[in-house]
Amino acid sequence: MFKNIRTLALTTAIVSATAVSAFAENPMVGGAAMYADKNIVENAVNSKDHTTLVAAVKAADLVETLQGPGPFTVFAPTNAAFDKLPDGTVETLLKPENKDQLTKILTCHVVAADAMSDAISKMIADDGGEHPVKTVGGCTFTAMQKDGKIMLKDGQGNVATVTIADVDQSNGVIHVIDTVLLPAS
């Protein structure tokens, strides 16, 4: 009987340690746990730092797409990134008549691949310090690295820094960024 209790206790400890280590692999985003077995939308809705992005994804009817099998790499701007846009920009983009423009901007934050930061860093290094990043929205941004941080320059010269990298998802990866990337004018 005691042997079974010890075996049960050991098994419980191993399962608990495995669950904790699996959980620890993903960083917290916006005060919320991010689960590798959930998709991009399921995780994003829990981040208090991404409420504007989630609202925009809903307004652009991209929820179903980003819940799909992917793989997707999403460069996810925070609420503070959206706040850096000129006054009224977000409100204007969220209007139904601007859905195409909103969709273009959002899909320019998505790459049709599962690109973790080490792979992006290698591509940057292999290309001599800058790597073109082609998005599903038809934009091409320039990935570069400074002080160990991955940065993306958009078609208008804006530079976004990855502030939280490698948030693993069931259908790809999220990299949190501090600036909204925009298509070339």
Rank of each mutant, 00 (worst) to 15 (best):
A9W: 07
A36P: 04
I177K: 07
N43V: 10
N26W: 13
P183T: 03
V167Y: 12
T161Y: 02
V74I: 11
L53E: 00
I164Y: 07
D166K: 11
S117I: 10
P132L: 01
A44R: 09
D154H: 04
V41P: 07
D168W: 04
N79F: 13
L85D: 12
M28F: 09
N4G: 14
F2T: 11
G138T: 02
L53V: 09
T135C: 09
K38H: 15
A19N: 13
L53A: 03
G148T: 07
A76I: 08
F72Q: 01
A44F: 08
L106G: 04
V90L: 15
N171Q: 09
V136R: 00
A24H: 08
L62C: 03
M151D: 02
I124P: 00
N79M: 12
V57C: 01
K84F: 05
V176M: 05
A165Q: 13
Q67P: 05
T142H: 00
T18N: 14
V63G: 09
A112V: 06
P86H: 05
V20C: 14
A9L: 14
V159M: 07
A36H: 13
T103N: 11
L181C: 00
T52D: 04
H175R: 02
A160N: 06
D147R: 06
D178H: 09
P86V: 09
V90H: 14
D154M: 05
